[in-house]
């Protein structure tokens, strides 16, 4: 499986990830705790923990220790790269189908 389809599968693997991606893309200035981010999509910190971890592993989100709290924010550079990889992949799929 190519890197692009792997990324795409992981991004689309849960509804929470979709909500998080939409939230951070619309609001790239968010830097918040897991609980704070969860509140902004109407969920709880516990229910989004695994999805946040997955997005951090993908490099789309970044973690930073701020005192005793952990802050999460969008890694704009890596996010741009991921979007480019997915875009290229989708374009190549279209060409294949065409």
């Amino acid at each position: 499986m190519s890197e692009a389809s792997d990324i795409l599968n992981r991004l689309l693997s849960s509804e929470v990830k979709g909500d998080l991606l939409v939230l951070f893309h619309k609001n790239p200035g968010i830097i918040d705790t897991i609980d704070g981010v969860a509140r902004r999509i109407g969920r709880t910190g516990n229910s989004i923990g695994n999805d946040v971890k997955d997005l951090v592993d993908l490099g789309v989100l970044e973690r930073k220790q701020v005192g005793k709290h952990e802050a999460i924010f969008l890694d704009r550079k890596r996010d741009g790269e991921v979007q480019k990889i997915i875009g290229n992949y989708l374009n190549s799929m279209k060409k294949k189908e065409g």
Binding site: D32, Q65, V66, A71
Partner: peptide, 20 residues
């Protein structure tokens, strides 16, 4: 310009380290 969206507990963090 920067628009930062955060929670008060993160802005008020007291346990050392740098401010957001």
């Amino acid at each position: 310009f920067r628009l930062i969206c955060t929670s008060p507990e993160l802005l008020l963090e007291t346990d050392g380290g740098e401010s957001i």
